[in-house]
């Protein structure tokens, strides 16, 4: 969960990119890492197998605006998408302040998207949390491929909660939609710390 440090005047958030294997979660972080100037990013760490599949997570710390005297910093993580790495997905999810669900827009991957979204909800329950409580964004990735489902259909299948969440169309390898996604989720996470949207720290105490 977010860490507000009055001594250093910083707010740190953890953003987790979730989704099925090969949906483009790592590609999102790689593009952000490639584009941001050194002053706004730290080292990118990828714990991957020999064939570049994520085995534990990718990690990229980035810094953003200063809001009311607090520097805002976001730590971006991906989870391994492959079904068998459920335990590590759950561990990476710990303490997430915001989520990006990266869906593969191709027709033949719809089922994996649905299963991964269900898996996300299951794993959040481990932390006594639901999707409704965490700022999150849907990213419909690979829109540049020929065999993609219409966005309306993806919305119907994946964005079905009572309160619908923002979605972004993306082609992460080319960078399209990557920063729109990051800006949207980071703004939502930040807004959740201020005013009436503040999360229940006071109530919990």
């Amino acid at each position: 969960m977010s860490v507000i440090n009055y001594a250093k005047r910083t707010i740190d958030f953890k953003i987790v990119y979730y989704g099925p294997g090969l949906a483009g979660k790592t590609a999102n972080l790689q593009y952000v890492h490639r584009c941001l100037p050194h002053a706004n990013k730290g080292r990118m760490i990828s714990l991957a197998t020999g064939d570049d599949r994520t085995i534990y997570f990718d990690f990229l710390p980035v810094s953003a605006l200063t809001v009311r005297g607090f520097e805002t910093r976001f730590q971006l993580y991906t989870v391994p998408g492959q079904v068998q790495y459920d335990m590590t997905r759950r561990l990476v999810l710990r303490g997430a302040d915001g989520l990006v669900f990266v869906a593969d827009s191709q027709f033949e991957r719809l089922r994996e998207n649905v299963e991964s979204l269900r898996n996300l909800e299951t794993n959040l329950r481990e932390y006594e949390c639901t999707l409704d409580e965490i700022p999150h964004v849907l990213q419909y990735n690979k829109r540049d491929l020929p065999n993609v489902a219409p966005v309306e259909y993806l919305e119907f299948v994946l964005n079905r909660r009572a309160r619908r969440v923002p979605f972004v169309e993306a082609a992460a390898l080319e960078g399209e939609g990557v920063f729109d996604t990051l800006n949207t989720v980071s703004r939502m996470a930040l807004a959740s710390e201020f005013g009436s949207e503040r999360r229940g720290h006071d109530e919990a105490s």
Binding site: L65, V67, R68, F179, L190, F194
Partner: peptide, 23 residues
């Protein structure tokens, strides 16, 4: 949590995109 700086919702200027393409 102390309210202080966190009492008021973000205003429009504070809600802008944190990173602005072109990248």
């Amino acid at each position: 949590r102390p309210a202080g700086e966190f009492a008021a919702p973000l205003n429009a200027a504070e809600s802008g995109p944190a990173w602005t393409p072109p990248y």
